[in-house]
Design a protein around this nucleic acid. Sequence first.
DNA 1: TTCCGACAGTGGGGTCGCAAT
DNA 2: ATTGCGACCCCACTATCGGAA
Length: 512
Amino acid sequence: MLLHRLAEVSREVAATAARNRKTALLAELFREAEADDVPIVIPYLAGRLPQGRIGVGWKVLGRPVPPAAEPSLTVREVDARLTELAGVSGPGSQAERVRLAGELMSAATETEQRFLLGLLTGEVRQGALDAVAVEGLAQATGADPAGVRRAVMLAGGLQPVAQGLLADGPAALDRFRLTVGRPVLPMLAHSASSVDEAVRKLGVCAVEEKLDGIRVQVHRDGDTVRIHTRTLDDITDRLPEVSAVVRGLAGRRFILDGEVISFGEDGRPRSFQETAGRVGSRTDVARAAAEVPVSPVFFDALSVDGRDLLDLPFAERHTVLAGLVPEPMRVRRALARGPQDIAEAERFLAETLARGHEGVVVKALDAPYSAGRRGASWLKVKPVHTLDLVVLAAEWGHGRRTGRLSNLHLGARTADGGWAMLGKTFKGMTDAMLAWQTERLRELAVEEHHWGVTVRPRLVVEIAYDGLQRSTRYPAGVTLRFARVLRYREDKRPEDADTVESLLLAHPGVLR
DNA sequence: TTCCGACAGTGGGGTCGCAAT
DNA sequence: ATTGCGACCCCACTATCGGAA
């Protein structure tokens, strides 16, 4: 199949609003693909590379090159070239990547260039990724959509399922079962604004502490232990002490879901930055492990001794978990029968925060494990802080925000009457707010840049954030975690904005 | 007819590893 | 030794479609 055909379909999908039509377009293309093309066409149309990320970004792609007049590239040829690109390393590799990428781009037509650019930078933006591709695959093969979705979750990705389906038809779905050693997409949580809201929604539930670490899925098969992240990356080699702990557990074959986190000598959790830095260290693992040891803390069991637990209610999965994993290695929890226990649940949240954790996750006790979904049966609750800050600058948006000032630079007052930038945010704005702030900020502009405008510090905006973290980038030495806009405060003057000093007082110990 | 669940998009900060400077 | 890039951890929120109620 020609890449040109894919690029045209991608363009048409992007230009189509109706999701059913997007699905149909993808299905049509999947039906056209030859067997050898399938493992390439499917991920491409889901906006990703079969090779995963291959170290090619905006810089490597460099300046635009003149497009080819006629389409000639086949998807298999593109795939082969990208595999070659992915393999380049060592001194001189950057120049070689640039050369190979340039060669590929000059062989592509304009439409193909646009598609390849999106694919390589991970920004296809056609309004259809995994979910729509899964639906399209089901339609193309006549398989049950729910069955395909489930198989994809269990296989950890679209590709093996697509190959099976196109080779053997719907019967292939039976092959995809939960298997120890093969990671499955983890279940995710929605947010709730309070414990009260969460417990009222879920009824009989567990309230579990939410640790601010790295999500892990741990597989043990005898003496073999594998540890995977939320995106199913294998990080076993970076966490030897976790493997050792898991080998010490009673069961021989199991899959557990949990978090790894580092505790300080005082028993309190270290900052997310410290845990993440440790888990990210690959070169001198022994030293990193000595300096910042991490511990696994589990909260779910997906499979134990050959039993697939996914469809069991959480209450039963937890009973199995508790039989396998001793208490300190499980998250703390409280049970709530429903609204009558809200006070207790709130007390548990307060205690959890006092112990230095992030918040709680409220989980329905009767719900199955919805692999790969953001199930409504898990609700996270975290405290939210707010500040009144001043807009110092704003950046032009992209995609559907093109032509709108989008990303705000946020400043707090300093002791000398100036402003210290604390970070940026693009979150929380409605279309109406985007339109309004674009106009207002242009009026306040003192300087225009290619990236946006700097403005007179006049506009006060109320910002929600999850906490303060250390920063080497911003002048106060701190930045906001997950900052988002709540509303503009036109009733406030810049002099009413919060100060760096009061912010640091509100979060003692962050700078130290 | 209205409501709501699921998706995709729009980007945020930090840290690590690697290659280039 | 320092800098810049890319990958990958953490993530919130809004708009939209289409099926459920």
